[in-house]
Design a binder for these strands. Structure first.
Lengths: 183, 183
DNA sequence: CTCAACTAGTTCAAGGTTTTATCAACCACT
DNA sequence: AGTGGTTGATAAAACCTTGAACTAGTTGAG
């Protein structure tokens, strides 16, 4: 399947983490024939593709700007929803409340996010972006999207639509009672 | 669109992290019309669905057995490929060499993994599962697959096939030169 | 045969995440 | 009002990850 075989067994060098998924399913199926191979393939590929893309985005877009991937996610969430309670920010960004607490602490010190007590309920903390935070986030967001575009350029428009539809369908399962969610 | 409006603004409770993706794309498109919305949707959904599933698998299957998700991933990699160099384990499991080094240290102490020097090249370390490691992994693997099955049960067989095809296509981009990979 | 360049693995510091525990504030019921 | 039960946020301890620096072993060009 691969053109250049010159190196003997040195063929696959760049990111084995993807190529290995099929072998993994094969071996598991051999050893445990009752395995649901489709389920396994989906979860493996999902996880690995998401990981590779996330690593690329974080290392090529966000780290050079001084943001971690979680910091970008959290700031983006606040940017989208506007002033919001810490708890809502956690659930919408997919982190635990503790993670948001510690991350906002960092971002507050960097002057990117503000934390103010909610006057109507003093337990609550309202998060918002500072002007500097907004500027930082918007620049990162644009560059992030350019990079996302490079990743998905190979998919036809209808493939993109279908992929999102299937991911959405899979994500809907999260509303089932047996699913363990953060918090 | 939603049936129950009784609570006023208390409608969406379980995992907002999924519902928010569409709003995020909308807002970004408003603010930056040049945004590639398809690319953004794909990456957002990919990341969030992968995260929710991973969290569920880790917290419901692996933590109760005393394994972290990374530990499971690494042990699974070794289980699939057999005795292997630390470097290969890193690239196939999608972690950095440093992460593998620290993780194998833990797993070695737990008696799940062995590290032996390669006689032919003393720089190299060969990793393998112990018998206990194999037993532990295989039990976790079976339970993991049962849970994966629950997640994907809602997809028709052809949808499952198509989803994997599209993920694979997306993953293939990782071979492009501009992509930042771990290591 | 030797020295420079490279490679495999480890270590370190810094930061992020998790779970569990704690504390403060709120709410509802008597 | 008070008291018990929630809820929101933070703190602590343990673990994982990253990038950079470091050690040691290997390779190969002259």
């Amino acid at each position: 399947m691969v053109h250049d075989m010159s190196g003997g067994h040195e063929t696959a060098e760049r990111s084995d983490s993807l190529g290995i998924a099929d072998l993994a399913v094969e071996r598991t199926k051999e050893r445990f024939p009752e395995t649901d191979a489709d389920a396994m393939s989906i979860v493996l590929w999902l996880h690995r593709v998401a990981n590779v893309i996330t690593y690329d985005l974080e290392s090529s877009v966000h780290r050079p700007r001084g943001l971690s991937w979680p910091a970008f996610r959290l700031m983006f969430t606040i940017w989208v929803s506007g002033t919001m309670e810490s708890k809502a920010a956690a659930s919408q960004s997919g982190m635990s409340r503790a993670a948001v607490s510690s991350l906002t602490n960092t971002l507050d010190n960097l002057g990117l996010v503000t934390r103010t007590a909610d006057p109507s309920d003093k337990r609550k903390i309202l998060l918002d972006l500072t002007d500097a935070g907004r500027v930082t986030l918007e620049a990162a967001l644009r560059e992030n999207n350019v990079q996302e575009s490079k990743w998905t350029a190979g998919l036809a428009p209808d493939e993109a639509t279908e992929l999102v539809r299937l991911l959405r369908k899979l994500g809907d399962v999260a509303t089932d009672e047996w699913v363990n969610l953060r918090d």
